[in-house]
C-alpha cells in the first residue's frame, strides 16, 4: 500500500468571490521510503500541494489517502493528531520559537502528544543527536546560525518519529555549505527508510531526491526519477 495516494486533487482559493485555482487534477503515488522533490517556478502550486499533502490545508476536490485513510473525511482534531504523529515539517524560515531553548523547540510536538514527560528528554536528545546538535541543547534559538537553526528544525520534525517529512525550501535561507549539510541530513534520514518530500524551485537541490514531480500553473507536467542523483557528503558532492 502506498503511503500517499492522490486522485484528481484540486485546490481553489476564494477571496471575496474571486476564485483562483492553485492546484488542478493532481494524480500520483508516494511509496514508503521515497525521496520525492516537487519542483517548479514561483506560483506553480508546489507549496499549495505540500500544504494539502501535509494536512495543513484541505483540498477543494479530489481524494487524498494517507497511509490508506481518506483524509478528506477528517475533522480538525484528527488532522492535528495526524500532523503530530505521522508528519514532520521543515520550513524555509525555520519557524523556531524565539527566546526559547533548542531543547524546548524540539520538545514542542511532544507537548501535544500523550508521551509521559519522563520520556520526552530521551526523545529530544536522540533527535538532536541525529542532526549533530546535542551540544547546543541549552542555547536559545536566536543564538544559533542559520544552518544550526535548520538542523534544530529537522530535529523537531523527527522527534515524534513521523512516517514522512515535508521540507519546504529547506535550503532557501542558507549559505551553500549549510544547505549541503541540511541536504546530507535529509539524505541520511531517507537512507534509514524515512519518506521525504522536498519542495524547491532549485534544480540543484531537487537533484538530491530520487524522483522529481515538475509543476507548472497548478498542474503536474512531469513525474520522473532522478537519473544523476546528487549525493551530499558534507565536503563535496559527487555526481553519480
Amino acid at each position: 500500500m502506498s503511503l500517499i495516494q492522490v486522485q484528481n486533487l484540486c485546490k481553489t482559493y476564494e477571496n471575496e468571490g474571486v476564485k483562483t485555482p492553485a492546484l488542478c487534477k493532481a494524480n500520483f503515488f508516494v511509496e514508503k521510503g521515497e525521496f520525492l522533490a516537487i519542483m517548479g517556478p514561483s506560483g506553480s502550486g508546489k507549496s499549495t500541494l505540500m500544504q494539502v499533502l501535509g494536512l495543513l490545508d484541505r483540498p477543494t476536490e479530489g481524494k487524498y489517502f494517507f497511509d490508506g485513510r481518506d483524509t478528506v473525511e477528517f475533522d480538525d482534531d484528527t488532522l492535528a493528531n495526524f500532523r503530530n504523529k505521522k508528519i514532520g515539517f521543515v520550513f524555509q524560515s525555520f519557524n523556531l520559537l524565539p527566546r526559547t531553548s533548542v531543547f524546548e523547540n524540539v520538545e514542542l510536538p511532544l507537548l501535544y502528544d500523550a508521551t509521559p514527560d519522563g520520556k520526552n528528554k530521551n526523545k529530544v536528545l536522540q533527535a538532536l543527536k541525529s542532526v549533530g546538535m546535542e551540544h547546543r541543547e541549552k542555547y536559545l534559538s536566536n543564538q544559533l546560525s542559520g544552518g544550526e537553526k535548520q538542523r534544530v528544525a529537522i530535529a523537531r520534525a523527527l522527534v515524534n518519529d513521523p512516517e514522512i517529512i515535508f521540507a519546504d525550501e529547506p535550503t532557501g535561507n542558507l549559505d551553500s555549505k549549510s544547505g549541503l549539510q541540511v541536504m546530507k541530513i535529509l539524505q541520511d534520514l531517507n537512507n534509514k527508510g524515512r519518506t521525504i518530500i522536498l519542495v524547491t524551485h532549485e534544480t540543484y537541490t531537487a537533484e538530491h531526491a530520487k524522483r522529481i514531480i515538475y509543476m507548472k500553473d497548478g498542474e503536474i507536467v512531469a513525474d520522473d526519477p532522478v537519473k544523476n542523483r546528487r549525493i551530499a557528503d558534507g565536503e563535496s558532492e559527487l555526481l553519480k
Binding site: G54, D77, R83, N84, F89, N95
Partner: peptide, 13 residues
C-alpha cells in the same frame, strides 16, 4: 500559533 498547529496542537490546545 501556525507552527504549534503544524506540529499537532488542536484548536482546544
Amino acid at each position: 500559533v501556525g507552527l504549534r498547529k503544524a506540529v499537532g496542537a488542536k484548536n482546544s490546545d
